[in-house]
């Protein structure tokens, strides 16, 4: 049988094994406040709690005490011009509970780039101010003169 096609399980037959799992999981920022040893994942809709547990333990070598899942239905909204109702795809969230003492904090990926952006912004602002001051000082003798008027 091909990779994605498994024979039906009957009592006594060998255990079904997945050789090339195509489940995906993504670590997401927790939607609610959760304990530090709990991690929230979004995962494939087909995954069960056992799948999540095996996935974490076998592929990522992360021990988990318990797994809880829920299916989140996103809020419906209306299309702005046509007015029909839009509903995004459902998401399955898995909460992986790690043993006591193991901690995970979602890292801030944009901390450094944020600082750099702030610096750039300040620089640009300073430059603009300087430019304006220059303009004022250049034109201080030409009071009440239209901007387009030059000699």
């Amino acid at each position: 049988m091909s990779t994605r096609w498994y024979p039906i399980y009957q009592k006594g037959s060998p255990q079904l094994r997945v050789f090339l799992p195509n489940f995906w999981m993504k670590l997401v920022r927790p939607t609610h406040k959760i304990p530090s040893n709990v991690v929230q994942f979004a995962c494939s809709m087909e995954m069960t709690k056992f799948d999540v547990k095996n996935y974490m333990e076998k592929i990522y070598n992360v021990k988990c005490v318990d797994v809880r899942t829920r299916i989140h239905m996103p809020k419906t909204r209306r299309e702005v011009t046509a007015g029909y109702v839009i509903k995004d795809d459902d998401v399955k969230y898995a909460y992986v509970i790690m043993p006591k003492g193991v901690e995970f904090k979602f890292p801030d990926l944009f901390e450094e780039s944020k600082e750099k952006e702030d610096e750039d912004h300040e620089k640009a602002l300073k430059q603009a101010k300087e430019g304006f001051d220059q303009f004022l000082s250049k034109n201080k003798d030409r009071e009440n003169m239209p901007g387009w008027f030059t000699v």
Partner: peptide
């Protein structure tokens, strides 16, 4: 490293 940090890119690629 078999860690939860495997879900994130290497640190030098953050915010690039």
């Amino acid at each position: 490293n078999n860690d939860l940090m495997e879900f994130f890119d290497v640190k030098k690629n953050w915010g690039v």
